[in-house]
Design a protein around this nucleic acid. Structure first.
Lengths: 344, 344
DNA sequence: AACCTCAAGTTAATCGATTAAACACATCGG
DNA sequence: CCGATGTGTTTAATCGATTAACTTGAGGTT
């Protein structure tokens, strides 16, 4: 497959490459006669001309490529949704995404930045695969956009989920169903998760608004996986009946999965005897549990879009404070009214 | 941030750009005196020179970028692992991955190919997010590598999981535990899944080898999600005792999840009363079930690596027949001996 | 002295576009 | 008839590297 150059088109149309360039890019096209334009377009079509973007980039100093650096592509199933959001916007704008996975290795990050800046990408997005506060790598350009993480030292455009509001929505959902004794199955402190703190704040605030005194016994922590959720739920279900929760808000869907297991183990049915709300709306889990899990969705796709929109200058990000993306509640079938003896 | 060019380095070192280029790339470097080399390197360091890969690419006709076209980034959690494999190899080789998601839209595929060829990528990988036979898009270069799909019309390097061997491994695992009545919870025919046919073939072959007459009643089909698995398992568990299976091989982990639910519902314990084997080794599901699921892993990471290795010419792919990547069995806790009354 | 070889560079063409500036030609007013 | 104005197109510089071909001077041979 021989590449056809602009000069081939020019030769065939009997004009100079300058003319071809102007016609095909629609620049200064008023200054070129319609007949010539027509000839050029036909010639381009006839020889199958495809512009060489490398050459164009060299000249224009724009590559129409955006670098996306992420700490780990593989480790979470969320990656795809964020990539998809970013990718969709890029495509709409005629840009391509160059992906670099640094696996959280500082040296790899340095190399990646170097490669991307050598590659002259038009913008850079720095993405984390779960919500954290990060020390941005040295050499990250000031206009890079942070995705699913907040900069430790501020001053950069960033987008993160509104975990606090998400926590509030979850608890409100349970409150609305009539629950008063609502547990929070939290992640252990040692994981130091931003999300954990914020969701808990949301939990407390809604209880306070409802005039409910939070019971410290109902705030339990475990490893944020199914096993941890099971164990934490079991601890709660062993409480004396009047102190036992009628609903559980779980830090994530995996813990909710464990809570389901615990409920089965104790012969309790969901939502008849126990209501459960998760967080993450994890693909292939939340909707597949039995009964399907009511949960709070992490807006990965939307955050990916936002980051790309800001990176491409379509939207202005506020460097002072991270943009909070709402976490919608997804209603399925794991929430019901509390068992009769607890009703009002 | 002003970009520093090679001529800046040359000026500072008091040599020509040709010399700088040779020194920094180690080409013809025997022809340049050590003192000069030293001077050049120091100058480059001093001014913070970073090569401009766009210019280099234009000259060398190599971009050190590989295009990865995929039908859907977002829809499966497998994407990440394949991307990670491809990405790791690319990085090892000093290449970057340019990602394009076409969402299975023919027009988008055409555009993507055009963009990538305009971008002069050195190689192209066409990836599917689940094992299929595809009509490759017109214009896909002959040396593009197919990942997790086989070309309808052959003649291209491709890699797919060895589903047949995977199915065999799963059934052998159950056989080895002493089971004789092994069901296959298959996907419905209308989904027309390559994997379904091959796994079933593997199932039949192992039974034949073991001298077991396959019971058609034990081959049931349903939608390959949790709900379908539950329903299919329930149908099997309603069989009269002597015809009931003691083990279930499920088309995927989601169906296995449903089989768990069915077992719970019938008051059966896993693996005490029923053994279950899944397929996919789906993150956040298989290991998180209670008990953890024994399953067959889809080698996404390895396939991603293989595809990139072939694409970069590190490995030679056989265009005649797709490369089969082994699917290792992952032993966890859902397989045990059959209940006593069925023992031998 | 004439010629050759080798070492250590340099010169200049090239990759394929974009674009400011120049050019050729026509038209028109005075 | 001159200059101004306008129109349509070309010329040539440029982006920043790579690299084949050439230069220059020193040293060696006969």
């Amino acid at each position: 497959m021989v590449r056809v150059r602009m000069s081939d088109v020019a030769a065939r149309a009997g004009v100079s490459t300058a003319t071809v360039s102007m016609v095909l890019n629609g620049v200064n096209s008023t200054r070129i006669s319609p007949q010539t334009q027509q000839r050029v377009r036909e010639a381009a079509e006839a020889v199958g001309y495809k512009p060489n973007s490398v050459a164009r980039s060299l000249r224009t100093q724009q590559t129409r490529m955006v670098g996306l650096i992420s700490d780990t592509i593989a480790s979470t199933p969320f990656a795809g949704r964020m990539l998809a959001g970013a990718n969709d916007v890029a495509r709409e704008q005629g840009h391509l995404v160059v992906l670099v996975d640094t696996e959280r290795d500082v040296e790899a990050e340095r190399q990646a930045l170097q490669a991307l800046s050598g590659q002259q990408v038009d913008a850079i997005i720095y993405a984390c695969m779960w919500h954290r506060v990060v020390e941005v790598p040295e050499g990250l350009p000031g206009d890079a956009v942070l995705l699913d993480c907040a900069p430790a030292s501020g001053g950069r455009a960033a987008v993160v989920p509104d975990e606090r509001a998400g926590g509030m929505a979850a608890v409100r959902e349970l409150l609305a169903a009539g629950h008063r004794r609502i547990a929070f199955l939290d992640a252990e402190k040692r994981f130091d998760l931003v999300a954990s703190r914020l969701r808990y704040e949301g939990y407390l605030e809604v209880l306070a608004d409802a005039g409910i005194e939070p019971d410290p016994a109902l705030h339990v922590r475990a490893e944020p996986v199914a096993g941890g959720g099971r164990e934490a739920a079991l601890r709660l279900l062993e409480l004396p009946e009047q102190r036992r929760p009628t609903a559980m808000f779980c830090f994530n869907d995996r813990m909710a999965m464990g809570a389901y297991a615990a409920a089965h183990h104790c012969g309790l049915s969901i939502p008849g005897d126990l209501s459960v709300v998760g967080y993450d709306d994890q693909q292939l889990i939340a909707a597949d549990l039995d009964p399907p899990l009511t949960t709070v969705a992490l807006p990965h796709y939307e955050m990916g879009r936002w980051a790309m929109e800001v990176a491409l200058g379509l939207l202005k990000g506020d460097p002072a404070v991270p943009h909070l993306m709402p976490c919608p509640i997804i209603r399925r079938a794991s929430v019901g009214p509390p068992p009769a003896q607890f009703g009002d």
